[in-house]
């Protein structure tokens, strides 16, 4: 058994009228959008607007209250769908296996699914690590990695699965501007090399503007805007503008306005 590089067709994703509440708090209130095979689709929105919740529905970690998520027309909440189509996610904090070295983190999927023999696996891991500028990191433990390295190892682990759909949850959060730019380049490069479908949840306007084919803006549990990055930049909607270009008003800060509103 060698370690075959399989190029599978990218898959399309369709989210239909998705509703999700946690207790009394309604997080998703009828979210619908579709992502074409091979596209980079960015979902933006304020903190707590439910962006990550959408990703958890797509990857099958969460059940919707109502509505559907379909991957190539198959129900994403069904584990069989994720066995038929290879889907993967890069978690916000990496979710690396802390008791395993970087090498073992990357080797886990191919070994458990008996895709590679050990010699071919080492070659593939070295190739993926080199692609992400992580040469020599294979024997390090996750606790020895910097924030940026953790993100890249998480991407590397996802790439070891050779996914048809790759989800990124806040890939540039906690990174300095240069590393954030590098991560954006990485997402675009991975998509260019593999052709996979990518859905990126982010706050990062630069990232969305530079690499996404389309951008959705989530606000109060609904899609407030969907279009190309150029259309987003030109959008005159006040809510969209307030999110994209927030004005820092030291004289009249937001927290005071909110406190006044509550007092009234």
């Amino acid at each position: 058994m060698s370690c075959p590089t399989v190029k599978l067709e990218p898959v399309g994703v369709e989210v239909k009228d998705l509703h999700k509440s946690f207790g009394d708090k309604k997080v998703l209130d009828g979210v619908s959008f579709s992502v074409k095979p091979g596209e980079i689709y960015a979902i933006m929105g304020p903190s707590g607007s439910g962006k990550s919740v959408i990703l958890r529905h797509i990857i099958g970690l969460m059940q919707a209250d109502s509505g559907k998520v379909l991957i190539e027309g198959k129900d994403a909440s069904d584990t069989a769908t994720h066995r038929q189509y290879v889907t993967s996610i890069v978690f916000q904090d990496g979710a690396l296996f802390n008791s395993m070295s970087v090498y073992d983190n990357l080797a886990l999927y191919p070994l458990e699914h008996r895709i590679c023999d050990k010699k071919a696996l080492r070659e593939r891991i070295e190739r993926v690590l080199a692609m992400l500028s992580l040469q020599g990191a294979d024997n390090l433990m996750p606790s020895e990695l910097s924030g940026g390295m953790k993100k890249r190892v998480a991407v590397a682990r996802a790439l070891m699965m050779q996914p048809q759909l790759l989800l990124y949850d806040e890939p540039t959060s906690e990174l300095d501007p240069e590393l954030a730019a590098s991560t954006a380049e990485l997402i675009a490069a991975v998509r260019a090399e593999t052709g996979l479908t990518s859905i990126v949840v982010t706050h990062d306007r630069e990232l969305a503007a530079s690499i996404a084919g389309r951008v959705a803006l989530l606000r109060q549990g609904r899609i407030a805007f969907e279009g190309s990055p150029a259309e987003l930049a030109a959008c005159q909607d006040t809510a969209v503008q307030a999110f994209l270009h927030p004005v820092i008003d030291i004289e009249n800060p937001r927290f005071r306005k909110q406190a006044d509103k509550v007092a009234k």
């Binding site: 990857i59 099958g60 970690l61 584990t79 066995r83 993967s88 699914h113």
Partner: peptide, 11 residues
Amino acid sequence: KEVDALVTMNI
């Protein structure tokens, strides 16, 4: 979320 990561890897 390491357990979630395992689930998403179909392990």
